[in-house]
């Protein structure tokens, strides 16, 4: 079964968001998403320093089975990307909420966080 940790926010497009103490947010894809994709073999990372809008494509994940777009769950500037995923994309399969994070965004409009789902709300749409 997929896991849906409490304390994270979720987009219906299967990204998660964790609000950090400095006000930035960490973004990744959910356990449910990695399960659907299966073995991930390439990741096109978000562009460091880019200004992105919510729901904008920021990354592409390629598994053996399919290619899938990843969308920014929130508007803002990308201030960090997880380079480790370039050589070891399988980390997203083994640790979607930990070492498999994609990027950190400094939000331009924190109220957008309220539009995201909580763990229960996201689990419901995955059923």
């Amino acid at each position: 079964m997929s896991s849906f940790p409490e304390g994270l926010k979720y987009a219906a497009t299967h990204e998660w968001v964790r609000v950090e103490s400095d006000g930035s947010v960490t973004v990744g894809i959910t356990d449910h998403a990695q399960e659907l994709l299966g073995d991930i073999v390439f990741i096109e990372l978000p562009k460091l320093g880019a200004d992105v809008s919510a729901k904008q494509e920021i990354s592409v994940v390629e598994s053996v089975k399919a290619a899938s777009d990843i969308y920014a769950p929130i508007s803002g500037k990308i201030v960090a990307i997880n380079d480790a995923l370039l050589d070891s994309p399988e980390i997203v399969n083994s640790s979607p909420y930990g070492d498999g994070w994609f990027c950190r965004i400094v939000p331009s409009d924190k109220s957008e966080l309220d539009e995201l789902l909580d763990a229960n709300g996201y689990a419901e749409i995955c059923e």
């Binding site: 299966g38 073995d39 073999v41 053996v64 089975k65 399969n93």
Partner: peptide, 8 residues
């Protein structure tokens, strides 16, 4: 069965 644990 499409896969068991990991296709690779």
């Amino acid at each position: 069965p499409i896969q068991y644990q990991s296709l690779i």
